[in-house]
Design a protein around this nucleic acid. Structure first.
Lengths: 291, 291
DNA sequence: AAGTGTGAATAATTTCACAGCG
DNA sequence: CGCTGTGAAATTATTCACACTT
């Protein structure tokens, strides 16, 4: 049963993939489920329904069940999912049974914060090395790790079996750092610099850009404001024209007045989640980056 | 022409929306285009083709054209897009014609880094206030701003017209902070704490979770490793079983050996982008969070 | 020619709704 | 009965390919 896509990418009929190739959207949500499950486990729950887990993870239950079904799923009808078993399964699928070594490049403002991030350790990773190009920073001790010069990257990457590189440099340096990471054999990169990286096939890059997140929020603010301040401007404003210099002041404070889709994609807005039933508080015990 | 969805959410036939309601996926990409456009403008280009802009933004040109067509689009056939005009349009749509005020709650490790983030200012936002719950931190001066106690939030939010709240507290405090932000009239929240926030309808929440990003990368690492280390294990390994205690050592270093889809969703991997044609370097001038 | 804008085709994702198991 | 697992439907997103404009 399950296993919707038997053959994977390779058309070869005989080969069975060692791992199911999950839809990307599902992969992106598994970590969220995992966190919720850990919270539940800590609260003493040893079983949970799709409804309960979905609420704790901020998705709807149909989506959750579909996602879990892709892993072959380990629920019991009429009962729910065994929390410990599901944790084990998801951690396995995500490759978290081994603690992966992370190299952080760029120990500026953000780099410092990341180097001190406790969530690294608690969620399956180990910061193994810090690098910077600035000689005046090399040698500095951060959180028990010494900052090395970027030129030592290749050597260190091999010695520490670096699996993931995190780029926290200015944009101007990011591509060069990425090239060096790739040359050192790193095939997964998390990029905090606001620029597009070009990497060879087989290398995964994920990007986090604070300003982009804010700009997306800004769009929705703009949208909400334009909907409320001109409630029924029947004519005019045919299209979008920068002339509308409104201050968007209109009415503040009216939650419940709109009816956008109540759930959003990816890391997007988690608005409109049905309030949690009872003891399943969504508030966890882990800390934010930094504390 | 264009304007695929004339009526917007409201079924009312007479009402014309002040803003087109763009697909979420498009909204999420507009900031990336905007950044690329600013880079192009700085490099002296005053016009760009969809091909060129797409390359600079890390997407393919068909997607870019479709995205831009949703805004009514301002290109010239046979020529391309006017860079300055497109910048103006996108900034308008994203609501960046006004500099929005941001309140940052939690000035720990990460909060400090965010408070010093230059991209805030350069990309349309103004950090207007810092808050923390820890009395020993209140009064501290960060980047020219004094840290206030969280209790002053409502008052300050009104005085400074805070549009967006950024939560950089431990997870345990995040829900409470979100409640206070909402109570103060803030309808957009960027959450760095690893937990799901429950907010009333009409409030947008976006989440950034470093550990989740790493775990997604971990999945792909795991996947790549299992594909290469057992190249043709015809039988066995029928499903996913945590027994496989392999070290995934196998073969390191083989870019170009796999053939995943060469482009990825949302903020996901930007792998496989065709190398930029000529002068359009994707490397910008902006800095990463922190520097 | 060169390159946008867009219908139509395809693919991915989400949601529905319910059969069937414990 | 309650709740999972899942086909089928609905929705959303991406890609193709080309008519059409400058």
């Amino acid at each position: 049963m399950s296993q919707q896509r038997p053959g994977g990418q390779s058309g070869q009929p005989g080969a069975v993939p060692a791992l199911p190739d999950l839809p990307e959207a599902t992969v992106a949500r598994l970590p969220e489920y995992l966190r919720a499950l850990h919270n539940l486990a800590e609260s003493g729950n040893d079983t949970v329904s799709s409804e309960g887990l979905a609420a704790a993870a901020g998705v709807n239950s149909a989506k959750l069940r579909k996602d879990l079904s892709h892993l072959g799923s380990y629920g019991t009808r009429g009962v729910g999912y065994d929390v410990a078993l599901l944790i084990e399964q998801i951690e396995y699928v995500l490759g978290l049974t081994q603690r992966r070594a992370v190299a952080l490049v760029g120990v500026g403002n953000l780099g410092h914060a990341l180097a001190g991030y406790a969530g690294f350790a608690t969620r399956g990773f180990r910061i193994a090395a810090l690098f910077d190009a600035d000689p005046s920073r090399v040698g500095e001790l951060i959180n028990g790790l010494v900052v090395r010069h970027i030129e030592d990257l290749t050597e260190t990457a091999a010695a520490e079996s670096i699996a993931i590189g995190v780029i926290a440099t200015p944009a101007a340096a990011a591509q060069s750092v990425a090239d060096q990471l790739v040359a050192a054999g790193v095939t997964s990169i998390l990029n905090f610099a606001p620029c597009v990286l070009s990497v060879p096939e087989g290398v995964d890059v994920r990007k986090v850009d604070l300003a982009i997140e804010l700009q997306i929020l800004s769009f929705h603010e703009h949208r909400k404001a334009s909907l409320t301040s001109l409630p029924a401007t029947g004519s005019g404003a045919g299209k979008l024209r920068p002339e509308e210099r409104s201050d968007e002041g209109g009415a503040r404070r009216l939650p419940g007045a709109f009816s956008e889709r109540s759930e959003r994609s990816q890391h997007g807005p988690a608005g409109g989640l049905t309030a949690l039933p009872g003891g399943l508080s969504a508030t966890g015990t882990e800390e934010a980056v930094g504390t």
